[in-house]
Amino acid sequence: MAYKVPFIDPKLHYQNLKAEIDGAIQDCLCNGDLIYRHQLREFEKDLAEFVGVKYAVGLNSGYHALLFALMGIGVGPGDEVITVAHTFVATVSAIIHCGATPILIDVAPDYNIDADRIEAAITPRTKALLPVHLNGRVAAMDQIMSIARRHRISVVEDAAQALGATFNGQMAGSMGAAGCFSFYPFKVLGGFGDGGSLTTNDPQVAQMASRLRYNGEDRETGEYHYHGQTALLDNVQAAVLSVKLRHLPVWLKHRRGVAERYRRGLSGINNLALPHFPETGQWDIFQNYVIRTRARDRLREYLREAGVETLVHWPKPMWEHRGLGLKNPGLPETEAICREVISLPMSAETTFEQVDYTTGQIREFFSRRGPDRS
């Protein structure tokens, strides 16, 4: 159906940048710059500078960034990696594909890893912590890094949803041994297909990822160092992402403005939790604007009928997907979140008028239900 308020509007997004994007693509095609050309190298340089690290390695997905980051710090069979279950499955799949065991712990009220639960999960086999900066909010990295130093274990940041978010002035993806980003089309910085990047200050991690992405080959010498994978970020995608990266600071400011508009429109509704948490060092960029209510499913249907498109991340806990072979770790907060959260329209193109319509519909829904009903 055609929504009055779409979750995102990729057609409008393209139209707003058409001249710049078409020029970048045409430059690649007219010059035959298709694989590993200067556009990719320039994008990597600009991304590294934006994140505040020495190296960025362009990859074809956020999953490969996670996989290569873990491999780069030596995660392998017999190791354990502590992370969360309230995340996209790629976070856990990367651990498993290293031959390691994911140790899933619960999340805090802001949907990020509950740092107070980390130390209880550490064993002699713990090789790394893998916090997920969900919805554009950085996890409690001061506490996480302190724990990691104390136990001499590495930290890999899943920053797929947090490009541009900061903690105490440091960018997501710049604090651990490596940061992992996704350029899936609906991210704050999205391509016209899949894509990702690993960021790091460690030259060995960067070199390993650079080789692994190209079937294990060192492109400068032609020597093969590993049985690698085909995971290079396409050159044309890199050119498009370079265009978009120049606009990203303005888009992030707009997202925070949209989030504030939602806050004003939705404050004071009983039994509705908003994603405005104490910014104890965090500067959130609102990849998703996630509200929480026990009436989630009924609210979502009401909004659909009113022409407002929403998404749910994720409708059931990861371990309930039997094909993944995960044991139930007993995480009550994760289970409750899966039942209760809903993401509202949020993008660089979302207008205040669309926000006002959406908040008006939500207020109407709750007014019909009465003040004390969950």
Rank of each mutant, 00 (worst) to 15 (best):
V290C: 13
E305K: 15
V205H: 07
G195D: 09
L324Q: 02
H247R: 15
M318S: 05
R213C: 08
L266M: 01
Q282N: 12
E309W: 02
E301F: 14
Y302K: 12
I291F: 13
G193V: 10
L245W: 10
G323C: 06
L252P: 12
I285R: 11
R300C: 10
L326C: 00
K244M: 02
T310Y: 13
Q207L: 15
P315E: 07
P275F: 05
F286D: 05
A259I: 09
T293M: 10
R304Q: 12
L326G: 05
L245Q: 02
H247K: 14
A209S: 11
G281H: 01
D297R: 14
A259G: 09
E320V: 02
L311K: 11
D234R: 11
R213N: 03
R292M: 06
F277R: 03
D218Q: 08
E301S: 13
A231S: 05
A231L: 08
H227I: 11
S267Q: 15
G265D: 07
D194S: 13
L272A: 06
I269N: 06
A306K: 15
E260G: 06
H225V: 06
G307K: 04
Q282S: 08
E223N: 08
L324K: 07
A206T: 10
D194A: 13
K316A: 09
E305F: 15
W314E: 09
H254L: 02
S242M: 07
H276E: 04
Y226G: 10
R255T: 02
N215E: 13
L311H: 11
P317K: 02
D234L: 12
G268P: 10
G257C: 08
H313M: 06
V308W: 03
V205Q: 00
L324V: 03
R261Q: 13
R322I: 00
P249K: 08
W251M: 12
T230L: 14
D284N: 13
L212V: 03
L299Y: 06
L299R: 09
Y289M: 05
P249V: 09
E279T: 03
R211D: 11
G216Y: 01
L299Q: 07
A209I: 10
T199H: 12
T310E: 10
K253Q: 15
V290A: 11
L303M: 09
L272G: 03
